[in-house]
Design a protein around this nucleic acid. Structure first.
Lengths: 229, 229
DNA sequence: ACCTGAACACCGTTCAAGT
DNA sequence: ACCTGAACACCGTTCAAGT
């Protein structure tokens, strides 16, 4: 419903327009769906036209990531006004805000990791996290450990593995696959039987939902706080 | 110095030989260096010959991952005979053993994540981790949380970001990049000045070394143990 | 049973050219 | 200033064919 919802080839190309469309492509079809040629097609333009506005594919991905992290920063700022009184609550709120945004762009964490790239918005994000801990009185040394400890979680996501889904590709429950699970992972199967809701049985409960995310985050924050005091 | 060190086109192709060479390619040049065409060339064979032994590129990567996790299992078994008395020490030893192997194959964690794929050896790895916790008396529910909490760390790696390296590409220290760091990340810079050794100044200390890995791992295990007791 | 060759549908990107 | 077209060096894979 926005002005660029359909690729009306009216307005001229621009860096911003290229990057926004790149985000949409990756959101819809995963990072592999983001190719220069498809991007051009989506923008109603020849592939090479993009290169006038952006240096190459690398710059497209980096630029898209930067836009996403601008969004993260905005959301975090909103979630922390007025600022929580403890560093722990402050950091916690920031990280959960990041998560809310990045859940919308599942390709972004992976792209960030696999490129190890720095963008201004991302740099600012990390730096503010450090500042929050520092003004909470943590030593530089502990802050350094904390950065490692929180790892990618400080960027609002945890690495989850989607394991075999015993549902067949057609969506039908696959008894063969369930048996296969029991053969390969008897203990995991026992765990799932106990933990997972009935209507989820057959699917591995590898769900990166907010509860699990907070469970781990709180253990980490608790451990850091203990070492700070 | 092994028999297959140089691609002597003497011995016939085999699934095993294909997968071993795939691991070597990825180890040397990263996952992007692993292409079917290069793999064939390395094996002294035409690209299409590989398809007789392996279904396609996906199967190559999956198969290579499986071999790596067989190695992980061997290393972990050796590190836990005789088995440590507490579940916490047992799990800890397994995870650190996994790390030792996966540090040699940095592409493997990423490939595992980005494909969300299951292989027999990997399934067995996860399942045994569950078994260790269960025989330590943890509830299924807590074990389930634990799997989420440990996340990719239970596979021996943590997600680390290699941030901008202020060294220029030619290896010369780049004062512009250092200034850039200070501008974008003043707090991070302050932290690094305090924490990082002198000869590392200018480089971000985002080092996934064993100390940092254990620091975080122990916080997590400690938090889980507290919730178990 | 095992390997090949030609061909297809894709990539990102360079370079010279159009308006 | 902004966009295009042809071309190049790569991909993974299908399919029919060789030995």
């Amino acid at each position: 419903m926005t002005t660029v919802a359909t690729a009306s080839r009216r307005e001229p190309l621009s860096r911003e327009r290229v990057l926004r469309e790149a985000i949409r492509l990756a959101d819809d079809g995963g990072i592999d769906a983001l190719t220069m040629r498809r991007l051009a097609q989506q923008l109603g333009v020849e592939p090479m036209s993009i290169y006038y506005h952006v240096r190459g594919k690398d710059a497209v991905v980096t630029g898209a990531l930067d836009l996403v992290f601008e969004d993260v920063a905005r959301r975090a700022a909103a979630a922390t006004t007025p600022p929580p009184s403890s560093w722990r609550e402050h950091l916690r709120a920031r990280i959960l805000a990041a998560r809310e945004v990045l859940v919308q762009h599942p390709w972004a964490p992976r792209a960030l990791e696999s490129r190890g790239t720095m963008t201004p918005a991302f740099a600012a994000w990390v730096d503010t996290n450090v500042a929050v801990m520092r003004s909470g009185g943590l030593s530089w040394d502990l802050i350094h450990h904390a950065m490692h400890t929180l790892g990618s979680r400080q960027f609002g996501f945890s690495q989850e593995l989607i394991l075999d889904d015993p549902q067949g590709a057609d969506g039908e429950p696959d008894p063969t696959a369930a048996a296969e699970l029991g053969r390969l992972m008897p203990n995991v199967q026992a765990m799932l039987r106990d933990v997972v809701h009935d209507d989820e049985v057959g699917t591995l409960g590898w769900c990166d939902d907010r509860t699990e995310f907070e469970f781990a985050l709180d253990i980490l924050l608790e451990g850091l706080e203990r070492r700070a005091g």
